[in-house]
Amino acid sequence: MPDMGRDYRIIGFLCNWCSYGGADAAGVARFSQPTELRIIRVPCSGRVDPMFVAKALLSGADGVLVSGCHPRDCHYTEGNLYARRRLELLRRFLPIIGIDEGRFEYIWVSASEGSRWRDMVTRFSEKIHALGPIPRMAEAAHTLCVLDGMLGVSSAQPDMWTAGDAGHEPRRDALLHMDDYKEVMDGE
């Protein structure tokens, strides 16, 4: 693998049944690949919340790759179709919050497609290198707070879900709201 210079920060969300297996298959076949991608295993691409991607990019990731089963081959029948709809919207939305849409991609790789996985990772890593490091946004911290609010996660209560929060008020305001985005946009 040619040295691609500075290391970039790339996060992959891979579904357990197809793409994670495909990445395993690529490893078993000793297909040499760029090392920058860090993989997070999820049960299904339908589990990938667009907010995870946005959050990663705003937190300094140079690129995010989501990979699931091919359409019609989903372990959960239709999870990847939900993913496709959500992630396509996200891709078009990214430029609005000032992120190059090229930094995010969603692809389909099956468990038997080790070589396809190698090609995809290599291509995506090269693309991120061509795009360069993600610009630091001054308002990112603010946007992140808004996103955290939406996700119901805050540093004060990092684990609102599993820690059990009897006295915690349900966050009805956590609904996606145009005002949230307006706030972000105005900030910029």
């Binding site: 997070i40 049960p43 372990h75 879900w161 956590a174």
Partner: peptide, 29 residues
Amino acid sequence: QGCGICSVTCPVRAIQLAHFTDSQLLAEV
């Protein structure tokens, strides 16, 4: 079956997939 599609669908994050909660995945990020 534990796919987690509902977790992403829920507008108020009231439904979470055990062992793959938002907190857990964001902790990795």
